[in-house]
């Protein structure tokens, strides 16, 4: 079902529990690199839990438990010798609501490189900030106001700023958790265009509520339902010719 692109993540029997409740059950999935993979499904289907498996954000939740095997480029990211902090340096994440730190635009973007010691000189840091802002399509709008407080930007700009913040640590993967849900249609369109551009460099996994959005921007789509991966296929095929009746029902709007 998956063609020539190399595999970035491969998950085997991945389950996620929060306390006693099971959010994800025995998911097997192979996510191709330099590609956009969309995770869709009704609320509570486990798509966000699956997303958080890839950068071990579930570790932060005190009663969360992840079982199974997840490999990134063949390395088991849940192995005991893997530091989740370093994993997250390679797997960036953009959340539903942009949360810029209450500091300047520049400081927001420079945050990651400073943490990981990516820039030895000020000039290099400036370069990194500029490059990240350019890739996030924000440079032209903020280049004259790098020292202004980031929370003063519009929500659309904020969302691109946090994207730039993730890009600044030079990740391989960008996870997006419903990144457009707090944006207006114009800002959404800009973000989608940006994702289209970024997928030439990065492996992008996006959780979305909107089937239309998944259909527009993704190359592969996974449909989850009640914690199980029902179907994973090329987007075109999944939307035109779903193999499972539940997928069919969901994309035709019969539930969800």
């Amino acid at each position: 079902m998956v063609e020539d692109k190399p595999i970035k993540f491969s998950g085997r029997c991945v389950s996620v529990h929060y306390g006693a409740s099971r959010a994800l059950h025995n998911v097997d999935i192979d996510i191709p690199d330099r590609n956009v993979t969309a995770l869709i499904g009704p609320s509570g289907c486990g798509k966000s839990s699956l997303l958080r498996v890839f950068n071990r954000m579930n570790d932060v939740i005190s009663n969360a438990r992840v079982t199974g095997e997840v490999r990134m480029d063949g390395i088991d990211i849940y192995a005991p010798d893997v530091d989740p902090v370093l994993l997250r340096a390679r797997v960036g994440m953009v959340f539903q609501k942009p949360a810029p730190f209450p500091r300047s635009v520049y400081e927001n973007v420079a945050y990651g490189p400073r943490l990981h010691g990516l820039a030895r000189t000020k000039a290099r840091l400036d370069m990194l900030v500029e490059r990240s802002l350019r890739r996030a399509g924000l440079w032209d709008e903020v280049k004259d106001r790098l020292s202004m407080p980031a929370p003063g930007l519009s929500v659309g700009q904020q969302q691109r700023l946090v994207l730039a913040r993730s890009l600044a640590i030079d990740p391989d993967v960008i996870l997006m958790d419903e990144p457009a849900s707090s944006l207006d249609p114009i800002a959404t369109a800009r973000l989608e265009a940006l994702i289209e551009e970024l997928k030439t460099r990065y492996c992008i996994i996006i959780v979305t509520h909107s089937m239309a959005q998944a259909a527009r921007i993704s190359d592969h789509t996974a449909f989850l339902h009640k914690g199980e991966l029902i179907e994973f296929d090329q987007t075109e095929r999944l939307f035109t010719n779903p193999a499972d009746i539940r997928t069919q029902d969901y994309i035709t709007g019969r539930f969800g």
């Binding site: 190399p6 595999i7 491969s10 192979d30 490999r71 990134m72 480029d73 063949g74 390395i75 990211i77 893997v82 530091d83 902090v85 370093l86 994993l87 340096a89 390679r90 990981h116 010691g117």
Partner: peptide
């Protein structure tokens, strides 16, 4: 092709890993 060679590959560069020791401390 799902299974990459099973060697002890590191997830991050040597410099970052080394820096990580200090950060953990």
């Amino acid at each position: 092709m799902t299974d990459a060679p099973h060697e002890k590959a590191s997830i991050a560069s040597l410099a970052m890993t080394r820096r990580m020791h200090r950060r953990r401390a």
